[in-house]
Design a protein around this nucleic acid. Sequence first.
DNA 1: TTTAAAGATACCATATTAGTATCATTTGTC
DNA 2: GACAAATGATACTAATATGGTATCTTTAAA
Lengths: 135, 135
Amino acid sequence: MKLITRDTDYAIRALCCMAKSDNELVSVSDLCNKLRIPRPFLRKILQILNKKKILRSIKGQNGGFKLNISSRRITLFSLIVAFQGNFKFNECTFKKSVCPEIKKCKIRKKINKIERYVVKQLKNISILSLVAERG
Amino acid sequence: MKLITRDTDYAIRALCCMAKSDNELVSVSDLCNKLRIPRPFLRKILQILNKKKILRSIKGQNGGFKLNISSRRITLFSLIVAFQGNFKFNECTFKKSVCPEIKKCKIRKKINKIERYVVKQLKNISILSLVAERG
DNA sequence: TTTAAAGATACCATATTAGTATCATTTGTC
DNA sequence: GACAAATGATACTAATATGGTATCTTTAAA
Ligand code: FES
Ligand code: FES
């Protein structure tokens, strides 16, 4: 049950890298040399981050990407949502047909409680916190 | 990032059902009538639970399944592991090649901390706790 | 001996994940 | 203006995981 898929993971690394390089413009080529991520895959990932307004892109020669918002405001939660869609540990297996059998579905209740905790934690992990020397 | 997949979920329900029916022998037919789970799929699931010694099976006419251990000792954690393999929120994306770049891999550290909490919680949710009237 | 159960295994369909490939567009440089 | 080097957009593909079926064997009660 991967919490973080490959693309999310690469995104995190790329963003960390960009945050560390003092928000200069970086090209995909530079990044994938540093991070050893397959180039076309990384391109796709950065394009998504651009659409989500997390990165800003500049086209043309000497173009590239840079952070569009502060690294403090980019959280693991938002990245997971960006690449993996809505955060949901468990959906209702049966759509209202059998659920009532197990009164008020304790499974869901308990799982949701755990989920709320995890979401809270993930919202608290920012790119800044990942590149900071201590923490 | 589903924490609980369909088979695990069905297993939970089946076990809850068996725990509630005072540990009588139940056949797959009975169970899938009650729970509206596709029969051959439920069979496969119960066979797995049998191999994991969570259920005990009795072959032949009037055969079926029953709990092999106390419902208090069957945890969500053990069921997730049984059906979904080792519990791991995140694996190392790069096998030692780039990891060191991000010192001591804070991503992993932070994710693992969350994971430890979740595992602890899941070990604390037993089938008994799911069928109990209050809790 | 028939029948109704589980055991074992192989197969199949769909969805998700992890990418590639290609072509169009933009922009700095000569 | 032509070219090169970058991103934008989009379609395609391969591998794996998920959610099942199908089928045949074995067991044991009636
Ligand atoms: S199965 Fe539907 S809410 Fe629990
Ligand atoms: S990527 Fe390998 S431990 Fe972090």
